[in-house]
Structure formats: C-alpha cells, structure tokens
Amino acid sequence: MTAPGEAARRKPTRRPTIKDIARRAGVSESAVSFALNDRPGVSQDTRARVRRVAEELGWQASSAARALSGERVGCVGLVLARPAQTLGVESFFLQLVSGIQEVLSARKIALLFQVVADLDTECALYRRWWAEGRVDGVLVVDPRTEDPRPVLLASLGLPAVVVGGLAAQPPDAPRPPATHPPLATVWADDAKAMATILDHLHALGHRRIAHVAGMPGLAHTERRIRSLRTEAELRGLDKRQVRSVTTDYSDAEGAEATRRILDTAEPPTAIIYDNDVMAVAGASVAAGRGIPVPDRLSIVAWDDSALCRVTHPRLTALVRDTPGFGRLAAQELLAVLDGGPLRTVQGELPQLEARESTGSPPAP
C-alpha cells in the first residue's frame, strides 16, 4: 500500500532520450539520430523500428536542440506592451488570440504570449528570443506611428507579421527601406469604419460629436482621429464641434474622459468610444448624471461584445469577426515561415449594428 504523501515525493517522469530509444531498439545512438532526422545511413527496417520505439516512449525532439541545428522550434511569439490592468475586461485580444491559436494548433505550433510594460522591453524580448532560438517568428500587434520594431526584426532576420498595419505615409512621401523594411501585414480599414459611424450619426442629425480614443502613438488611434476629422469636414461639420481625446482603453479613463467632455460649454450629442469597455463606462457616467441615452446622448462602441448587448440600452457597435482577423494573421505568418511572399492583406470591413443607444439629438 502506498504510504501517505509518497506520490507527492515521487520524482517527475524523466523525458525519454535518444539513448533510451537506442537501448530499446537495439541499435547505436548514431543510428537513432539518422533515423529520426531522415538522414541516410540506416536501413528502412531500422528506421521504422526506431520511429516505432520513439513513439512508444513518447519521445519528442528538444526545441533547444532543433534551434541549435537551425530547424524550426514549433513556436511563434506574441508580445503585448500595454498596462496589464487594461486587459482584464477587454474582449478584443482574447478573441484575437483565440483565432490565432485555432490556426496554430492545427499545425501543432505553440504560441508564446507575454505582456510587458513598454516598447523597449518588448524589443529586448525579441532580441532574447532570437538569441535563444525560442520562436520561429512573431506576430506584432499595436503598430506605432514611430515604431522601432520593423527595423529590429528585419535586422535580426526574425520572420514577422504586423497585425493592424503600420502608420500610413502621405501618398507623395518616400518610405526609406531603413525606416520601413518590408514586413507581411494584415490590416483593418479604420478610415472606412469611422466613415460608417459618421454616416450613421450624421444621418440622425448629430453635429457635435466626440471621440474617446485609445492610446496615443498607436497607428490605428492616429488613423481613427485623422479619419474623424476628414469625414467631419466632408460633411461640413464645424471642426470645433468634433474632437478626440486619448486614453489607455480602461474603463476608468473612459469614464473620466466622458466626464470632461460632458462638462464642456457645448457638450456633444454623440460620443464614439474606441472599445466596448469605455463605451459601457461612458453610458454609466451619463446615467449617473441623469442624461438619458439616446434621448440626450447617443453612444457608439468601436468593438462589439457581450457587454454592448447586455447594457441597457443596448449599445450601437461595429461588429467584426475578430477571431477571423486572428486566423488571418496566423495564416500569413505560417505562409511566410513556409517561404511565401511578404503580403499586405486586408481584413473584413466591420459592419455597424444600430441598436438602442443611438437616436436623433435633442432639439436645439
């Protein structure tokens, strides 16, 4: 009978080695190496016997050994340089990662995911992963307007796919290769998405519109801010009545931005929020001040989620296939690792789903 606590004292099961396979198969260790690495020097019968024994023992090639030999390690990396506290309730990245993982798991490729404090730490992590041979390639999220990562990854020769698109350059501006080396990219059309929202609000009669944006310096934040201004100008709106404020994407900053906006001399009749969490926080601020939604204030969330659909009133939101965007990014990275060309691929344009949080503005 096993004594109490004996199982806890047992040593962990040792990983099988090439020596174990050689002993069980009755061949030399070099013969095992030849057989498992598809090298000549052993008969077909020996190769089959070695592989059968390796499978019986549950042997897997060491990722460190594969890295030293120049082979793939079966792992790709994803680093997120954002305040960790802003990720707890935001559904976007969870859905994105689920799509990425769906594609990778089908190829039995692992995802190494890490949250870091800032961009410098992210770059240092890429250097370490490259030096240690930890990953075959990386998915780069949150492109910046001034982004050091493309140059770094190109200099390391580490395959990468940028998720979201690099900062747009003016059409007549040169793009020096040293500044923007070619990288595979999957991107979403933030400009058209913002135009869809403006079409909806403008048709309802809104002329004073605020935008509670995400983190400053992110390429997609700048694109959305710029697109809001452009679309407002195209519709003849007073630029003083259409403005954006940046935040860290958290509910706390979303709520604080809403308070500041509502305290202005001419508060907006509609607010666009760059994620679902801030939109719900903004709706809560409005409710606390006795401002009915949508009778006095319309609210739009950039990303749809269960939060938008269970809030009362339900929030108008951009609906997109975020897991599908993650799948697209992972597929592009695997294509690059398989020797494919560096492509720029556009994701599906999100569609605006009008719900109860948007309506006509109050009469002047």
Rank of each mutant, 00 (worst) to 15 (best):
Ile261Met: 15
Ser33Arg: 07
Pro181Asp: 12
Ser250Pro: 00
Cys308Met: 05
Ala8Arg: 06
Trp302Phe: 15
Ser69Gly: 08
Arg14Lys: 13
Glu71Met: 07
Ser155Trp: 12
Trp187Asn: 08
Leu104Glu: 10
Ala255Trp: 04
Ala270Met: 05
Leu352Phe: 05
Asn275His: 02
Arg224Thr: 02
Phe113Cys: 05
Val73Trp: 00
Glu29Met: 07
Arg49Phe: 03
Leu68Pro: 08
Ala219Met: 07
Asp199Ser: 02
Leu125Ser: 09
Thr264Ala: 12
Arg240Leu: 15
Glu132Lys: 03
Glu146Leu: 15
Ala330Asp: 02
His202Pro: 02
Ser250Asp: 10
Pro294His: 14
Arg39Tyr: 03
Gly288Tyr: 08
Leu152Glu: 05
Leu234Val: 04
Lys108Pro: 00
Val50His: 04
Thr46Leu: 06
Lys19Phe: 03
Met194Asn: 01
Val212Arg: 01
Thr145Pro: 04
Ser360Asn: 05
Ser105Leu: 14
Arg144Thr: 13
Leu152His: 09
Ala131Leu: 12
Leu57Pro: 06
Ile18Phe: 12
Gly214Thr: 01
Gly205Ser: 04
Asp38Ala: 06
Gln241Thr: 11
Leu318Lys: 13
Gln169Glu: 05
Gly288Ala: 12
Gln346Trp: 09
Leu297Trp: 06
Val345Arg: 05
Glu231Asn: 09
Arg15Ile: 02
Leu297Met: 15
Phe325Glu: 06
Asp321Asn: 14
Gly236Ile: 02
Asp142Gly: 01
Leu36Asp: 03
Pro292Asp: 14
His206Met: 08
Met215Asp: 01
Ala329Arg: 09
Leu334Lys: 09
Leu125Phe: 14
Ile21Glu: 12
Asp276Thr: 08
Pro176His: 05
Trp187Met: 04
Ser69His: 05
Thr185Val: 10
Leu119Asn: 02
Gly217Lys: 01
Ala330Phe: 02
Pro292Phe: 11
Arg309Gln: 04
Phe113Ile: 15
Thr316His: 09
Ala178Leu: 10
Arg260Phe: 03
Leu112Asn: 10
Asp276Tyr: 00
Glu348Tyr: 15
Leu228Met: 15
Gln44Thr: 13
Leu352Thr: 05
Ser69Trp: 06
Ser244Ile: 08
Cys308Trp: 07
Thr230Cys: 06
Val310Lys: 00
Gly133Ala: 01
Ser244Val: 04
Asp199Val: 08
Ala154Leu: 09
Ser69Asn: 05
Ala124Met: 12
Ala317Tyr: 01
Ala255Val: 02
Gly164Tyr: 03
Asp263Arg: 11
Thr344Trp: 15
Arg320Asn: 07
Asp295His: 11
Ala178Asn: 03
Gln331Ser: 05
Ala219Thr: 06
Leu125Arg: 14
Gly324Asn: 11
Ala167Phe: 05
Val32Met: 10
Gln351Glu: 06
Gly236Ser: 10
Glu222Gly: 10
Val310Leu: 07
Ile197His: 05
Asp295Ser: 11
